[in-house]
Design a protein around this nucleic acid. Structure first.
Lengths: 136, 136
DNA sequence: CTAGATGCTCGACCGAGGTCTAGGTCAACG
DNA sequence: CGTTGACCTAGACCTCGGTCGAGCATCTAG
């Protein structure tokens, strides 16, 4: 058992983030990582707890539909260090707006689907004729 | 001006659904259309109002993340005619559950993003040191 | 008659985001 | 000592859902 903290291999990070080593390397190649990933004597990646935290935010960004290229822009800003916080904030705001919009869209879809479900349920309940889909 | 109803060309359907003629042909090839698309004397597709309604549902399904292959399964059931309504209903239920789940996921992401936004806003407000991202 | 829309088929191409393979290095275990 | 397992790189490959282009037919307007 190695020191369970702060000096992680790619495998450990994969286990913690659920991201898969291939994906982690891809993310690094694509510039999504805000901190430089160090290497040990043998050229192996060494991740810090900070990297893992960052990656956890990344997965949230991904899960909410942020494309890799946007995460990269964000990562670049963070890498540049203090002074551009208002830009980062703007980026986050933009993304939040998109997510809100997306939720609204899904909610609308949900209503439409629910409407159709109701139709089918009524149809099946009274085993009669409803205004449901049938090939014309 | 042709009869503005029920006998539509692919261009008109494209305009009504916002789907693009290439996409409409793709959908047909992929078996997403529940009604057979007829052809006129010259081999041109003829869509009915029913087809358009179906396509409108399809765009809702797509917008809520249903993959083409699932829409195809649904379309096949509809094409088979009455008798399988419970299967269709099951399919709709399943999809609705997925959408609900997706909304929940997005909502969680929204909270995380909001949390980070708060951090940046506080940081920028007091122009001091916050617990925000900076390369370690 | 000719040009411009609009339609057709078939097949290539694209971007996003992974995912996998081949071939190699290294350290530890039995 | 050999093998196992984790890691490395470079690059191929895959799915999904479109999107586009070439080459052709047909209708309509000027």
């Amino acid at each position: 058992m190695t020191a369970a903290s702060s000096e992680l291999t790619i495998g450990q990070v994969s286990a913690r983030t659920g991201l898969g080593v291939h994906t982690l390397r891809l993310y690094e190649r694509e510039g999504l990582l805000a901190g430089e990933v160090r290497r040990d004597g043998r050229g192996r990646r060494v991740y810090s707890a900070w990297d893992v935290e960052w990656l956890e935010y990344c997965t949230r960004f991904r899960a909410s539909g942020m494309p890799l290229v946007t995460i990269r822009r964000f990562a670049e800003l963070v890498r540049q260090g203090p002074g551009n916080e208002h830009i980062r904030l703007g980026l986050l705001h933009e993304h939040r707006d998109l997510v809100v919009e997306r939720i609204a869209e899904l909610t609308t879809c949900l209503e439409v689907i629910g409407f159709k479900i109701d139709m089918y349920e009524k149809h099946l309940a009274q085993d009669g004729t409803g205004d449901l889909w049938s090939p014309p």
